[in-house]
Design a protein around this nucleic acid. Structure first.
Lengths: 125, 125
DNA sequence: ATTTATTTACGAAAATGTTCGTAGATAAAT
DNA sequence: ATTTATCTACGAACATTTTCGTAAATAAAT
């Protein structure tokens, strides 16, 4: 696995692809348009660039293309968190955890899940 | 507080300033040079730009300038986490927490601190 | 006193990312 | 059949960020 560094726009598109699974340029553009102003050919160009970079794959379905994310959401998040911890938290992942926990609403269920995860980590320690 | 959006390079410089407190261009450049290749005038220019944007303040000390971060590390992290959760975790802060907890080494002390924080959140719920 | 080093300011090149217009091909609509 | 719509490819304009060279001022060294 090479370290892929998607740009801001590319990430937005990946999000759409991760949620749609497989999609035409039109579909991606429609989704993206809900979030921000973007022209059809801009979306197309972005997908073409991402295809060259192999961040997405595509299959020709008749005259048009169906695109699909070529990297998983988890792997990408992992990579981004690592980088983020470095650049914004001077390397301290736990500071990031604390900061996020403290400043964002968490449901009871989520807190329970986190507690469970912590218990698990403690067991394996 | 306006939403400040430091660039990658600006963040690196902020980190140096947060750790040094107050520093000359020379000092900042020396620190930054440990991390990556960068010319003196590049560092200078970056600091000048950041000064215009008011992300850093400076005082004239004789012939040279002493720079200081004008925004706190915490506020910046807060802002960056919010943005990061949106762009990389489709809005789910807790997914970010779980992902980070699961993939980074945490000491017993850190885990205890996190548990304490969770207990506190549950109390105030 | 003259040279050398260090500092700030500034402009502009280089690098990177984003946006879109235009052209050509094919399908759909009239 | 002709027009209209939709698709891909591609180049180039635009925007943003990064980098550094050069000049002017001042201090330090010789």
């Amino acid at each position: 696995m090479e370290p892929i560094k998607p740009t801001e726009s590319e990430l937005q598109i990946l999000q759409v692809l991760w949620s749609l699974g497989q999609a035409s340029v039109r579909q991606v553009n429609d989704e993206l348009s809900k979030v921000r102003d973007i022209g059809y050919t801009t979306t197309l160009k972005l997908l073409q660039i991402m295809f060259e970079k192999k961040i997405v794959s595509r299959i020709e379905e008749g005259r048009y293309h169906l695109y699909e994310a070529a990297i998983t959401e988890e792997a990408t998040q992992q990579f981004l968190v690592d980088k983020f911890v470095d650049t914004a938290f001077r390397g301290s992942a736990m500071k990031l955890v604390m900061q996020t926990l403290g400043n964002h609403q968490a449901s009871k269920e989520e807190l329970d899940e986190i507690k469970k995860l912590i218990a698990q980590i403690e067991q394996n320690a």
